[in-house]
Design a protein around this nucleic acid. Structure first.
Lengths: 219, 219
DNA sequence: CAATTTTTTGACCAAATGGTCTACTTTTCT
DNA sequence: AGAAAAGTAGACCATTTGGTCAAAAAATTG
């Protein structure tokens, strides 16, 4: 009998998770070429050879990290339909994406660098799934326009604006931190989120759902 | 007499420009660590030693390239005053930034990677000038709000949104190209620019200046 | 317990790469 | 023309680094 160990427990799985986490940190900070396997090993407190035991090559480890970050693209927007309210859906989408930027900035940075460098490692799966997803979402936006829930606009550029504006807070955090003199904390993200929602929905002639309006200065 | 040659002509200056251009191309595609000096030399069609003759170290060359990209940040927005119309100023600013993304995508990518990696090479000058610039622009936005030309909003997040949304078309071009199946051409940039202006100004409750409204489908 | 598989490690290697040294050629200046 | 400065270029070197190997240790299995 051959025993395939596919459990998440055990020494192997623990080490793998450990290595992936260390790798994510390093790749986000120094990029693929800038990260030495030795560095990842140090970060994971393992000898380098041990890292190469779990991931045969640095590239394989990088792709594994990259693939983990792709799961962050999932959101409720994926399953919205024409019956939903675009104001609610878009506001929620922006909120979710801002939350990813706040809680997973490293993953966002790795993804950004991968794209900037030509997305050589994002072939196959991501390409197809992502394009398919895009197609579906653009169709939904067109439906919203048809039924009068949205003004005439190009969904493509709307989505790019949302991606860019939300991911910016993760990817460009170094610039933001220097400009403000301090790191953005959770409260700052909430303000930024509120304002971004106001801007995007306003730009789409949509009313901002009350839940996304600051309820502090109401006197 | 010592003659300091500071002209832009001459073999030296030509070579320097040549090298800087080759370096920009390489750094944008492979990042700092990922770019070998030999590669830049090949691109510039010069022996590696010759490159190191003009720029003592790879780092020095990189910083030189980086500093050139900073000039792209200059815009008419820099000299706007409270007497100007924010709708006009912001629309022009977005247009200028989109044009930079279209015509200098490599510079934008290098800048983006530098920030993502912590902006270690953007100390001193950029830090100070940039922070000072930001301070002035935020003050201007606040003045606009005071005189009722703009609704209550946080200028900081507004500027981040503009930067993010415009630079996105340069930095993430690989993703965009794959999603659409072809590269964005000038006409696409114009459409994207128009829509981004509409979104941002709409989000600020500003009317879009007629000049920025598509004048094709007017029947 | 013995056999087998999985995991851990240090020693080592070949390729890539940033940078130096030295010598030669070309240009510029007086 | 002749000296000095600027530019070109091959040979070379030390370091870094991705990856291999073999051997030992630990865990698992029959």
């Amino acid at each position: 009998m051959i025993k395939l160990r596919d459990t998440d427990a055990g020494v192997g799985a623990t080490n793998k998770r450990n290595i992936l986490q260390a790798a994510e940190k390093c790749f986000a900070q120094f990029g693929f070429k800038g990260t030495a396997v030795q560095k990842i090993a140090d970060e994971a407190k393992l000898p380098k050879t041990n890292v190469l035991y779990y991931f045969k090559t640095k590239q394989e480890l990088y792709v594994a990290v990259l693939e983990e970050t792709l799961s962050l693209w999932n959101s409720h927007f994926d399953r919205a339909t024409v019956d939903d309210d675009p104001a609610e859906v878009l506001a929620a989408y922006i909120t979710e994406k801002m939350e990813v930027s706040r809680t997973h900035p490293q993953a966002s940075k790795i993804f950004a660098m991968e794209i900037i460098n030509g997305a050589q490692n994002l072939t196959g799966y991501f390409d197809e799934e992502h394009a398919k997803w895009m197609e579906g979402r653009l169709a939904l936006i067109d439906q919203w326009i048809e039924v009068g829930k949205l003004p005439q606009l190009d969904g493509e550029y709307l989505l790019y604006t949302i991606w860019a504006s939300t991911q910016h807070y993760a990817d460009f955090s170094a610039q933001i931190t220097r400009l403000r003199g301090r790191k953005m904390i959770k409260a700052d993200f909430e303000t930024a989120t509120r304002q971004l929602i106001q801007l995007v929905l306003g730009g789409c002639n949509l009313p901002v759902p009350s839940r996304y309006i600051e309820n502090i200065d109401v006197e």
